[in-house]
Amino acid sequence: MSKTVLLIEDEPNIIEAISFILSRDGWTVATHSNGHDANDAILRRKPDLVILDVMLPGKSGFDILRDLRQDAQFQDLPVLILTARGQTKDRELAQSLGVSRFMTKPFSNADVLAAANDLVP
């Protein structure tokens, strides 16, 4: 059974690129493109890995992460934040909220793939 990833991202072209990279490696990729109901989507799909953008319409990636970690069943769910906002304070905030990995855009395809495989061996 292949590993599943939920990609929460609103930029269509980036969704396309990440989906391509991960599915070619054997991941099952699901996507979700707004903030409001992102947590519902995670609850519904129960992915092995969540890749999360920060600047999302409706609800920021940080808020999604915070709510996610409050749910006991998602305490240990690997979450990879992938954001264009790469300032130190953003990284610190993400880490304080319990992010598993923090990567900034633009990224190298290989790094994203390696990170995903690292988080879900």
Partner: peptide
């Protein structure tokens, strides 16, 4: 954001 797509 556009740079990410372009690079990817």
């Amino acid at each position: 954001t556009p740079m990410t797509s372009i690079l990817a």
